[in-house]
């Protein structure tokens, strides 16, 4: 009986996807549904929940601090898209080139930062961008006679610092995605193009870029979400969730402040739902525009 069941061709696929389905239902769908319900409640741990309708949402959209958090997260996300897609692609093409010296060295040194803990890296970046004269950045700028800058008290400087941290950490990872994308491009295309007399730039434009499109779409999708959901970097950079004038506050940071620090779980759930909606809207639009939903035409 059991043997029959296990060897059944009809059942086997379901058995194989079962772990995923279970994980999805238990750790994703259930909490999501629960958060959705919570976002309509006034809820604190240890107290009985109260149903308050859409009050959390109407409060949220007049909440200036939340709007600041959205602005910060969106700017950060756009910044990572601008910096973390073209450059890793370029580096991958360079490293993939046979003319490149020390390819393995560059590959691993680009990837190394991704292995360090954000907590450690964030702390080091905080000290690097400290406002003291003796901090790394300020002593470097001091060589050129620049007065010490209070990096982490200024909105633009601190966003730049966060983006530098993101680039330092993620360039290698995105580059690796592109490298694996490049490996799957058949060399014959390039040979054919060479015979037709195409320049390196033309080959890049007409062969590499279009064939890397699936990779680019994947990297964009995860970058949009990672950018919007950024939290730990800011927490470490500002040594806590409360940055001056909220310049480092992100959507998840606000969720943490309301839910964990202030025990307003209902309000925090509403923040989480809004984050999900924003990320979904951006990504679905992006996927639609890039034609991911069309059936493959061959």
């Amino acid at each position: 009986m059991i043997k029959k069941f296990v060897y059944s061709q009809k059942v086997a696929p379901y058995v194989f996807v079962l772990p995923f389905i279970l994980i999805f239902l238990i750790f994703w769908s259930y909490p999501l549904a629960n958060s959705f319900v919570m976002s309509f409640q006034d809820r604190m741990l240890g107290q009985d929940p109260k149903w308050i309708g859409e009050a959390n949402y109407s409060k949220l959209f007049t909440d200036k601090v939340f709007l600041t958090a959205i602005k910060n997260s969106v700017v950060y996300m756009l910044g990572t898209l601008v910096l973390l897609i073209p450059f890793p692609m370029l580096f991958a093409v360079m490293i993939n080139s046979k003319l490149m010296v020390g390819r393995e060295f560059f590959k691993s040194s680009f990837f190394l930062p991704a292995l360090t803990s954000v907590a450690v890296a964030g702390t080091i970046f905080r000290l690097t961008f400290g406002e003291m004269e003796g901090s790394l950045m300020n002593s470097f700028l001091g060589l050129f006679g620049v007065e010490p800058i209070k990096f982490l008290k200024d909105g633009e400087w601190s966003m730049a610092a966060l983006l530098i941290l993101a680039c330092w950490r993620w360039t290698g990872v995105n580059m690796l995605y592109y490298l694996s994308g490049l490996k799957s491009i058949d060399n014959e295309y390039y040979e054919a193009a060479s015979i037709d007399g195409a320049s390196a730039w033309q080959k890049f434009r007409a062969i590499t870029m279009p064939l890397l499109k699936p990779t680019t779409i994947y990297v964009t999708t995860i970058s949009v979400y990672a950018g919007l959901a950024m939290f730990t970097e800011s927490l470490m950079m500002f040594n806590g969730n409360n940055s001056p004038k909220n310049i480092g506050l992100t959507i998840v940071g606000y969720l943490y402040r309301q839910g964990i620090e202030k025990n307003k779980l209902g309000y925090a759930a509403a923040v989480g739902i809004v984050l999900l909606v924003i990320a979904m809207v951006i990504n679905l639009t992006q996927l639609k525009l890039s034609g991911m939903f069309k059936k493959e035409e061959d």
Binding site: M44, L45, G46, Q47, I260, N263
Partner: peptide, 30 residues
């Protein structure tokens, strides 16, 4: 600590709470 005492699980027997944080622990009826 706030999570632990309000959920009733994992809290220590004795704890230090800073004055500025104290009102959060006294909220509500329980």
């Amino acid at each position: 600590l706030l999570l632990a005492v309000t959920s009733g699980k994992g809290a220590p027997d004795i704890a230090d709470i800073e004055l500025g944080q104290f009102p959060k622990f006294l909220e509500g009826d329980n």
